[in-house]
Design a binder for these strands. Structure first.
Lengths: 190, 190
DNA sequence: ACGCCTGATGTCATTCGGTGTCATCACCTA
DNA sequence: TAGGTGATGACACCGAATGACATCAGGCGT
């Protein structure tokens, strides 16, 4: 029996992502995910607060990396430089092996409105984390808010390009580039 | 019997908002909302796609106002000026009578994660609408994205201040002020 | 006045997400 | 070898959401 086989959480995540890819999110029940992982529905909900959450593991780590990345920047750095440093720190996580996972996950999330909502919530928490980390450096309103928002935007742009099918560039370079583009764009707003 | 009494939609919205205020969102069932409105659960779901949506009426109109507001700005206007014009157009909707509703609604949404998610989704659609309207004016990437995002941020800030308990200033003035603050902040990013 | 059509509503049954409760099992330790 | 502990299963239950079908009010033409 599946009982006591290790890595229940990862097995559930794997089963969920595969089933979502095969049949779609709505056409997959939690019971089916649990069954493929050799577990039961009840156990699924012991690991994940709800059905969507199974696709959002590691978000807390990402938020932490951003906050710590900002906090770890030299004291004299500008808000943009602090955000750039954070993007550098974050880039260490986006390795080649995560790329395959991200590429499988992205169309699933994009295809479902509920999952998009959850993604937006995670993104909002990320922005809040960056906001607080920047505020702790002494950056005042409303500059903190704009910096955090643009940092998140740069991250999103970089991630999108990183996941694109034929791209082979590293996440870090893409992130720096995206942030530079945004900085330049702020001059064109009038 | 409630059958054929008019304004079923508004009755449902009223009943829902009141019940959410009294007992909280989670502690209120759709059946209870429908009952207070003199209808049934099934009818509720004919008017609203899901339980959350009952709190988000008029969002399409808001998106439309933003898009048309941007499109209606003089051809030579900068992105910021176009967004400012849209905020002016939108301000016409935020009258005194809507203020009471907004003040009742805000704590309900803020108290529930599911409702926050939905709000973020609506906000994202708003940003997408502004993005497209700005792009139609010939504003290129990534400037459109930044302008739309900051426009939404200004709107959110203005709305927040407008709803604050002791505030008596008009929405339009608050919006212009918020947008100006954001423009100034872009100079401090480094 | 009568009957018909149409759209809005009610009724019923069902699926599935999510949760509380308790039993059960594997492993560890004394 | 007997508990003790933590993870899992089994079961019941609630509520959101949806499909299928019945029913009712009002408008319209005759």
């Amino acid at each position: 029996m599946g009982r006591w086989e290790p890595n229940a959480r990862e097995r559930l995540e794997r089963a969920a992502l595969d089933l979502f890819t095969e049949r779609g999110y709505d056409q997959t029940t939690v019971a089916e995910i649990a069954e493929r992982a050799g577990l039961t529905k009840r156990t699924f909900f012991r690991y994940f607060a709800d059905k969507r959450e199974v696709l959002f593991g590691g978000q807390e780590e990402l938020t932490r990396l951003f906050s710590e990345g900002i906090a770890g920047t030299p004291a004299g750095a500008t808000p943009f430089q602090a955000v750039g440093g954070a993007l550098d720190a974050v880039a260490a996580v986006f390795t080649g092996e995560r790329l395959a996972l991200a590429r499988q996950r992205q169309p699933v999330v994009a295809a479902n409105s509920d999952l998009l909502e959850r993604e937006l919530l995670k993104r909002a928490k990320l922005v809040a984390g960056m906001h607080d980390a920047l505020a702790a450096r002494g950056v005042g309103e409303p500059t903190v808010t704009v910096a955090a928002e643009l940092g998140c935007l740069a991250f999103g742009t970089a991630f999108h390009r990183w996941v694109e099918a034929d791209n082979r560039r590293e996440f870090g370079a893409l992130a720096v580039e995206a942030l530079d583009e945004l900085r330049a764009a702020t001059a064109d707003l009038g």
